[in-house]
Amino acid sequence: MGGMSAALDQLTDWVRRFAVAVRENRDELTRLDAAIGDADHGINLDRGMTAVVAALDAESQPTAAALFKKVGMTLVSTVGGASGPLYGTFFLRVATASGEVTELDGPAFAKALRAGLEGVVARGKAEAGDKTMFDALAPAVDALDAALADGDPLAESLRTATAAAEAGRDATIPLVARKGRASYLGERSVGHQDPGATSVTMLVAAAADALA
């Protein structure tokens, strides 16, 4: 099944790789947030993902639903700010869509990611071009669906999705922010890369690495 589906240990590895990426880029995420927000995105997400890793170390999770529910609940309880509810809701929706299984094939993983995206939209009410995490996550989920529909294996499809997330992230630079604290700046938010779009691109890239 190499690269065609994701076993529970690979899904766990995805979460752990995301935690490492957040830790390594903590200061960069905070720097991006200082420019147009309130200088805490890296700090808060790192605190949350550190708690997630501690929770996974303490107790292994029997199913994909249990794993992602644990991740979501931990983030909601430890992150605060806007990132806590947004990333928390993302993982809670991914948990529900994954179900009590120990392996997700490509379409099931894509369906779970789309459910997560829909959770982010329901919670944050962001639309395309608002300069938020949506602008990287939505094209990634679309690209994943399209690549899988073309018959690409999951691993390769996730690399395509990562490229789409990166393009979406970079495309936030010229945008005027319309959501969150960055929106208070109006035109002054132009020229800065959105921190949420940056961290969620790391989330997609971590999936491509873990599920390779």
């Binding site: 200088a39 700090i43 208070y184 002054r188």
Partner: peptide
């Protein structure tokens, strides 16, 4: 300066001020 960040949220020269700020060290209008 947010303690965990360790440096001022934005740079403001001695002869300048920000109008229309909030309460989070964010730049103003």
């Amino acid at each position: 300066t947010v303690p965990a960040a360790g440096q001022p949220t934005f740079e403001l020269p001695d002869d300048q001020m920000e109008i229309g700020i909030g309460i989070h060290g964010e730049p103003g209008r």
